[in-house]
């Protein structure tokens, strides 16, 4: 079972990398770009076969290590 953990800085936490990306896009002529936020995706291969259990397991991993919940939020999706 594959799990995908998406980690983003929480709303309200300054994301200077996102800002820099936004400025670069404007520089390339993409005038319609508003705020840009960047984050990371972590893909996990899990031996667990029950989707609900796999999700719970990945969420525990996110809370303990993959995300720093002081500054980041996360979302777990189970992929087949």
């Amino acid at each position: 079972m594959k799990a995908e953990v998406t980690i983003m800085l929480k709303a309200g936490v300054l994301d200077p990398q996102g800002k820099a990306i936004g400025q670069a896009l404007h520089g390339l002529g993409f005038a319609g770009v508003g705020e840009v936020r960047q984050g990371k995706i972590i893909q996990l291969e899990l031996s667990e076969t029950d989707p609900a259990k796999a999700k719970a397991e990945a969420e525990e991993m996110a809370r303990k290590l993959l995300a720093n919940t002081v500054i980041e939020s996360f979302k777990v999706e189970i992929k087949a």
Binding site: V13, L14, P16, N68, V70, I71
Partner: peptide, 17 residues
């Protein structure tokens, strides 16, 4: 120490990158 929870808060990327 912040990552370990021994001190509160976190250290973000410098505001000016």
């Amino acid at each position: 120490l912040t990552e370990a929870g021994l001190l509160p808060g976190a250290l973000l990327r410098n505001a000016g990158l």
